[in-house]
Design a protein around this nucleic acid. Structure first.
Lengths: 136, 136
DNA sequence: CATATTATCAACCAATTGGTTGAATACGGG
DNA sequence: CCCGTATTCAACCAATTGGTTGATAATATG
């Protein structure tokens, strides 16, 4: 799972991590401050932060023995872009279908339909590291 | 990991699953059609679809022995809402900070600063199923 | 310098994940 | 009724994840 988008989604799949992001959106915090509300060890929180940092969602500076955590809001754009792209595509298709159905209804004897011929348009590059199965 | 948001993020953390969503945004597909481009067994694809379905991202109907998969675009709203909430909060904070810095700069002897006093505002309900550590 | 505070590293463990293969189910068509 | 097509179920496996505890590093302070 090397690509950033995967890392960001995975990072946010954990409720504790999502809560941390929520709190960091209010103010930067130290690890201790962040850990306070959760019933887990400080080390566990440290691990969560590592995940968030590796995904690019947060960054950390240094202030004496403290390591203030800061939310990198720009990474949200990456997700929003991905989500919006496919949501819009799906919505467009829905509307296209609607239009076709309407047309079919309005004019019931015209028979030149070309539905279902859409075929691949976008499709993120999934061609990474596949195991060569399916020929077995 | 019971909540839907966690399931949706987890589902999209996998590139293959993301690619499926991308392709489903173009047209509904059967399992076989979906499986075609990937070098994994049909069963693996079936599992991926189960994950997507459990997250609410896709739904499936029945057409004889086929099980057409359909993208449920409305679930994207859930994510978008979550993302936008915290992105906006972080952006606002950033602008607030900017304003304060500007004010401090324009009028260097006024000293009534109240930065860093923000403290919890939103914070998704994380209070689910915690293990009772940290008192040990 | 000795000590307390803040945080990370390391080794370990149970549960989950993504994959496999083999068997089973569900239908439609001779 | 049997067969092929489409899909899922079941058992298994290795890798990853989220947690733990104990030790270690970095820094401020009495």
């Amino acid at each position: 799972m090397t690509d950033q988008l995967s890392k960001v989604f995975a990072a946010l799949a954990d409720p504790t991590r999502r809560d941390m992001v929520a709190r960091l959106s209010v103010a930067d915090s130290t690890v201790n401050e962040l850990a306070e509300p959760y019933d887990v060890s400080l080390q566990a929180v440290s691990k969560h932060l590592k995940v968030l940092e590796d995904s690019g969602l947060v960054s950390r500076t240094r202030d004496a023995q403290r390591r203030p955590v800061h939310l990198e809001n720009n990474v949200f754009d990456l997700m929003t872009k991905w989500i919006e792209r496919y949501r819009q595509q799906a919505e467009e298709r829905y509307q296209r279908l609607d239009a076709v159905l309407e047309a079919m209804n309005a004019d019931e004897d015209a028979n030149g339909s070309d539905l279902g011929a859409a075929s691949a348009t976008g499709s993120e590059d999934t061609s990474t590291d596949r195991r060569s199965r399916k020929g077995a």
